[in-house]
Each structure stands twice: as C-alpha cells, then as structure tokens.
Design a protein around this nucleic acid. Structure first.
Lengths: 126, 126, 126, 126
DNA sequence: GTGGTCTAGACCACA
DNA sequence: GTGGTCTAGACCACA
C-alpha cells in the first residue's frame, strides 16, 4: 500500500505523511477507518518505529487522523481537509508562478503549458 | 540587492543561488558582468564566506557563472540557461499537478485557478 | 580500502571521489551497499568530516551514491554510470590526442604507443 | 596569435604556457626567435604582467625559452624538447588508461576508440 | 547514530 | 585582492 523511495531526497517521515494524505483525500481510506499500528507499519516497511510515530504525529497535527489512546489511530472526516489541501496546492502553484515571472517567463507560457499538460494526462487515461 | 530571509527554512546558500539565478535570467545581471567577490558579499550580508563560496560553486556547476582564478566570478551567457530554467519550472508544476490529481483535484480546478491567478497578477501591474 | 596521497596535488576531496568511483564501477561496491559513514571515514583517514562530506556530495551529484537522511549514504545502480564514465575517459583521451597533434606528434605515434602500452600491461598480468 | 579562454578552468598563466609550447613545438616559433616582451603581451591580452612573467618563468624552467637580461626572451632549440613533450603526453595517456582499466574498461575498448578517433580526425583534413 | 548547514579562521595558488 | 581547500567545532533534522 505504501512504498518508500529511498532515492527520494525527502525525509522518510515526510514521504509517509504525503502517501497517507493522498490515500485519505482520494477516499482509499475512509473516515474512522483504523490506521495500521505504528509497530506493524514499521515492520512492514522495515523502518524505524520513531519515523512512523513522527509521521502519525504530523498527520494528527494536520487533522488527517486522530489518536485514541490504547486503541490506535483513526482517519478523520475529510470534509474540511479537502478544501485546505486545495488551498495548499494552489499556494504552491502561485509561488512557482511568481518566481517564474521574476525569471522572465510570461503568464502565457505558464497557462499554455499547464493546460496542455492537463490535456495530455487526460488523454492518457481514456 | 540580495536579501537573506532567516525565517525561510531553506539553507542560506540555496537562497543566494536562487536570488542570483533570477537576477541573471531576467537580465539584471548581464553576460560577463562581474559578480561581487566572495568576501565582499559575505561582509555585506554578514554571512560566512564559506557559505557564499558554496553558493557560487553551485551557480558555476549549473552554468550561471564562470570562475577566473585570481580574478573573480563572472556571469555566463544566458541563452541556453533560460530554456533549462523553463523546463525546470514546468517539471515542478507538472509534479504538483500530478499529486493534486491523486488527491482528487480536477484538471479544471487547476487550470481555472492558474489562469485566474495570472490575470490577477496582470491587473496588479497595470 | 581508501588511501590519501598527500603528495598528490589534487585536493583530498577529489581523490576520495575518484577512489570511490573506481570501487563502484569495478564492482567492489555493489548497488545499495552502504557507504562508510561520513564520520567513520573521516576518523579512519584522519581527515576533517567536512572534507568527506564534500566528497560524498560530489558523488551524489554525479549519481554514484544516494543519501537517505538519518540513515547514511548508499551506492546507486551502476548501469548508466559505466557508460558515462567511459565517455568521460574517451573525451579526455581525445583532448590529449588533439593537443599532441598540434605539437606535431603523428596519429601513428599515438596509436602505436597506446597499443604497445596496452600489450605491456596485458603481459604483466599473465 | 594567443587567445585566452576565460571560461577555461585552468589558470591563465598555464594557458599561456601551453599555447607557447605548441607554437614552439610545431615550428611556428623557431629557435632564437624573440618572444613578445612581457609588457607588450600583457597589454595585448589585457592581462596582469605578473601573469605573463610567471608563464615565461615556467617556459624557461621547462627549457622552451631562454632569457637574456636587458634584451628579452628567446626561443630555445627544439631538438630535445620534442622528445620530452612526447614522453609527457605518453605518460598522461598511460595514466588515463590505467584508471580506465581499474574501472573495468578493457584494453580493447581503449585502443579501438583511439584508432577510430584518429581516423576520423585524419579524414576531416583530407 | 547519520547527514546537512554554518561559522571562524587558516593557508595556498593565482593575478 | 580573488577564489579554493581544509580544519575545528557547533547545532540541527532525521531515523
């Protein structure tokens, strides 16, 4: 379900966080579903349990999961999360666009590229 | 000309690299212009010379400047660089779009947001 | 395993890079093998850790190793690297040949010497 | 006659030395020809006179030129020089071949490449 | 423990 | 003056 890419430069805990965020947001993990236990997941991925612990802490902090002591971690409701994630993504896009323009790339270059890329991806599926 | 943001989580040397890349790409620094000397810039920004050294090394590796021993660092020709930078930016955009879609954000959401944002920025200037 | 030659005019970090490149390319270090930790190697060679750090950074940049934060450095797959190294070597040979010819050394001089040298090395082993 | 390439990573004085060595070895500068004066050449190339001075010192040390106080620098006889240069080149080639083999490149790879490269260069001229 | 970044300061080659 | 390399040592993030 979760695969760690060691060649990825990002820290392992961050990869775990991102993977779960997507699973939760796209509905693969539904509200109140039980997350795998820290130990189990650590074993499965042969990763230090501290790392999983940290990832779960971060997921909780961002509101994606909630902890019930002695029982485990569970997925939160996704309603608000989806909107927040969207804002987050949009902010990242805006920042990139800003620096792009500082380097002399025009707005048209960007919108053209994006819409073309989106179409390409679309056709791949169909 | 260059300002370091200590609240920024990115390392200082990386901020320096990015700032100069933009200055070079948008023409504020032209081909064969002399870069500020490692020591001068270090003093100006009250940063350790080693850190500037590292930034300049990176800029040279990426082809933005060239070093003449005993003379200093100079800006390279920007011809090829601009294209490479564009590709770099586009790749980043594509990656964000990919993960966005994995989280259930539609292509339309993205293109709409981007084009709207670009228009907004446009009107700010005029 | 690794020996630094202080009489060599090349910087230490470069010697370290070259030594490891050969170890990786000839298979002494296989894919995903763990590299010695920065500190361990620094102690072993009685060199400053920063110098090893720099060598490892360069090895990573060239694709010979990859870093997992908090875990260490690991050897990459060698498939593409071998070809690139060959090209690199060939380019160096070509450059030397070019300047040789500019000094009035004939193509025959060079090919004769090379093939003779190669035979000599061959017979040393057998 | 002499052109400095500032994008070349080698120090300027070394480029000057190499250029003159070739001019002398291929006969463009004959025995006892007068070298351009340090000042003249410095002006012509808009280079620090110290740099030319250093290049000439190196050329004298290697036996390519000789100095007559108050008169200037003059080209030496080329007889012995040519042989020495050849040896120098051959030594460089041998070293590269050695490290190539340490990386698992076969003798055949090298000889094949060299002879092919030499043929290619041959045909370019004719 | 493991790597990443940074400072302070030294010494060297080059111009 | 200008960059290049290196040491010593600190502090931080990550596992």
């Amino acid at each position: 379900m979760i695969v760690i890419d060691y060649k990825d430069s990002r820290p392992i805990y961050e990869q775990v966080v991102d993977k779960f965020r997507l699973l939760i947001l796209n509905g693969a993990l539904g509200a109140n579903d039980k997350m795998p236990s820290v130990r189990t997941l650590a074993m499965e991925l042969s990763i230090n349990p501290n790392t999983i612990q940290r990832a779960y802490m971060e997921l909780e902090r961002q509101g994606y999961i909630y902890t019930v002591k002695g029982r485990g971690n569970f997925v939160s409701d996704t309603n608000t999360l989806k909107g927040e994630y969207k804002e987050e993504i949009f902010k990242k896009l805006d920042e990139i666009c800003d620096t792009a323009k500082k380097a002399g790339i025009t707005a048209e270059d960007i919108t053209d590229h994006i819409s073309e890329y989106m179409k390409g991806e679309e056709s791949k599926r169909s």
